[in-house]
């Protein structure tokens, strides 16, 4: 694989085919946990790790996997990887595990993971597959963090609250109070805020893309898929 090919994997995963903003897969966790930056970041990192490990295992086994059993095999592998991550989080990031709760095991159901397994890892060698998992996970993670930031800022006027759950005691000081005495904007914290926030992010991405390529919005690849 050439340097160009690797670069394409990176830009596809993070921008051109961004799971959250373009392909719109894995929306359930995306919408559910993004009420703060830290929740988004934590689920994003867990999903990224899952993608890298599942892509790696599937790429290694790809020669053995016959077409008729590949889907159950993918499911087995992804479920094992996610359960391992869940156990590790339960043991080492206990407070975060409690906050994210059911959404950690639900990473299994994120279609983006089986999607990458099928579309990429089962056809490519381990290194590009891991990179693809990293890029796709990074794109997803960035979307989660951005959406978390939008919602946390409008909903509570803070950023990075609860950082100590992810990074340890010292990080409690990281919480930024951007808008002091914020009365709390419930809509942003509750599920509708997730839909509005995601819509705004998608619109922002599309308009950025349109401006960058000087083409009308309708011709942008990706825009029509939404």
């Amino acid at each position: 694989m050439t340097g160009n090919g690797l670069k394409k994997i990176l830009t596809d995963g993070t921008w051109q085919q961004n799971t959250g903003l373009v392909v719109l897969l894995g929306l359930c966790p995306l919408l559910a946990v993004t009420n703060t930056v830290i929740n988004g970041l934590a689920l994003g990192l867990a999903t990224m790790l899952t993608l890298m490990l599942s892509n790696l295992s599937i790429s290694i086994l790809r020669g053995l996997l016959r077409p008729e059993i590949r889907i159950p095999a993918f499911v087995l592998i992804i479920a094992s990887v996610v359960t391992v991550i869940e156990l590790l989080m339960h043991a080492f990031f206990y407070d975060l595990y409690r906050t994210l709760g059911i959404f950690i095991p639900l990473i299994v159901t994120n279609c983006a993971i089986i999607g990458r397994a099928e579309a990429f890892a089962s056809r490519n060698s381990p290194l590009p597959s891991v990179l693809d998992g990293f890029a796709t996970g990074l794109g997803f993670c960035i979307t989660l963090v951005l959406l978390g930031a939008v919602r946390e800022l409008t909903g509570r006027g803070t950023l990075l609250s609860g950082a100590d759950m992810l990074l340890g005691e010292w990080a409690g000081k990281l919480t930024l109070t951007i808008i002091p005495e914020h009365p709390g904007f419930l809509l942003a914290i509750l599920p509708p805020g997730a839909f509005f926030g995601l819509a705004l992010l998608i619109a922002a991405r599309n308009s950025w893309q349109a401006r960058a390529s000087h083409k009308p919005l309708e011709q942008i690849q990706g825009a029509h898929e939404i």
Binding site: L61, L64, L65, R66, I69, P72, A73, L76, I77, A79, S80, T83, V84, L87, L88, H90, A91, F92, Y94
Partner: peptide, 24 residues
């Protein structure tokens, strides 16, 4: 083949469970 993958997955989970159980 599926059986072997399931077995490997189970072994991995049993191992990690063993390692993390006390801590959890």
């Amino acid at each position: 083949l599926l059986g072997i993958i399931a077995l490997l997955g189970t072994a991995l989970l049993a191992g990690v469970n063993d390692l993390t159980h006390d801590r959890i």
